[in-house]
Design a protein around this nucleic acid. Sequence first.
DNA 1: GGCATGATGATCACTTGC
DNA 2: GCAAGTGATCATCATGCC
Length: 601
Amino acid sequence: MAQDSADWNSDDDLDLQIDNYQSSPPSSPPAAVPSSDELFATLVDMGFSPENIARAIDEYGPNADTVVIIDAISKYTVTCEASSSKSKTIDHFLAMGFEEEKVIKAIHEHGEDNIEEIANALISSAAEVSPKIKEEEDIEWSESDDEKYANFLSSDDEKVSDSSSENGNQLRSLMNMGFSELEASLAIERCGTGEDVSIADLADFICAAQIAREFDEFHADPEEQKPNVKKRRIEPRREPRSSAADDEPLRLPNPMIGFGVPNEPGLITQRSLPAMARMPPFFYYENVALAPKGVWDTISSHLYDVPPEFVDSKYICAAARKRGYVHNLPISGRYQVQPPPKYTISEAFPLTKKWWPEWDKRTKLNCILTVNASAQLTNRIRLALEPYGGEPPESKKKYVIEQCKKWNLVWVGKNKAAPLEPDEMETLLGFPKNHTRGGGMSRTERLKSLGNSFQVDTVAYHLSVLKPLFPYGINVLSLFTGIGGGEVALHRLQIPMKTVVSVEISAVNRNILKDFWEQTNQKGTLIEFADVQDLSNEKIVELMKQFGGFDLVIGGSPCNNLAGGNRVSRSGLEGDQSCLFYEYCRILDVVRETTKTMRRS
DNA sequence: GGCATGATGATCACTTGC
DNA sequence: GCAAGTGATCATCATGCC
């Protein structure tokens, strides 16, 4: 089928296509080197404390390499967690947002044990500074919170407006500490006022409320998110949950848009990661959303309790693809790779419009699978429709629509519905046209590999936050690489790949990635391995020492035993292929531990 | 031997009707 | 609230043709 001439990968010449998408700037192109403000905001979004970020930037300078900054923050965090040398009192007040210098001074003046006096001194000090109004951030509040806040304002107007009241003082004090008025008011409303409730308790309450939103920002019942006043800012790592019985099983969101997708409302730009998930490297794991019950609970529990981000790619491109992504990437500052994917079938394949019957209401295709309809089906549909001109009976329409949805057919002639060609699938999935062509791949193998691949635009949208963090390039460990969806995404984002260590069992898929690497004139190093089970811990450490560690561990383990289409062996994570998920966990753990060791030395 | 083709349900989430 | 119906799903395997 001919393609829209404006399509980003529609040129026949592969080199030209590559040039096309290399040179296309992103819609909101980030600076090559992030400003200190951008860096600060991104690191806050990653879950690092503002105090540690400021400390690291102060120590190494605003132009220091991002990796150095993260490294320094990690060290502070480790030190903080271990409470080895730094006073817990200092940590306590640093976590509340006070400046370290003033905290130390207050402790010196009032003694380390006199918490209340230290707090009062710091608050007085903060009040002397000219008021700095912090803009309302994207904090999710339930309707009941809004209602309570409104009631609070209406019923306690006098208290709030009375500058001499305890309530008003506490409100102002909390706002001076950088909390929003809404946060401060809710804390006062829920904790009460008086001598038995200190500013420190209120600040702790707000911090605890932020922690309480760590998990399941989408799914959790607000009633179940009552924060614990005594909850600490940094939680110890929880042991993997042995069964889903302890917690409510993960549920798929509707609409399935994760933390938000371009062109759709409901964007979320803040989340708090479990403490154990915050340390480097970044990881990004993908698999089918519609896995057997309990599978995603298991996956999440083995990946540091990070809740999956479920996204259906139909909200980004013209084909559905329901997937879960577990990652520790920032979610603020995402942008869509350019040019954006075609959003509907008619936009993706404009020539089909001419033949598309009015009674076929589809605007999106279903998920691209690993098998395709036979050419014979096109003939059967033609024979079913031809006797009726343009208006077949309902029974025929129903049969044809059913087959079209089942096999993802598009209209390419009068009464002629045909399966997608591999290059059309490449377009839908965000790959360069002919990406899977050659390399010794048969048509059947192309279909299988494409059916198993990432939707590049979706993955690129998630990975786009790495662009300002790695202006000088990134080291990637790519597990279950397939045809290189992650690498194509990074390339389309124009994030230089310094090193890619790829592990992929299929020889033809490895050839595809190698071809892509050469065709796109990558300057970095590509190393390919065949089997994750052969990638020993020692080898991983050796590679990391050779290349200076990995910044990103990306991959989607086999879904064969999870996918709904498997009628033979849908046996879950313990299946012959899908059990390789545990290899991803093993390797990620080794990378994390080695990263920690390397950065301490 | 390589490849295309077609037959083979189960599971899950969601909708609908009562 | 519950049961039945509906639709979607990164698949596997045997068979026949070239």
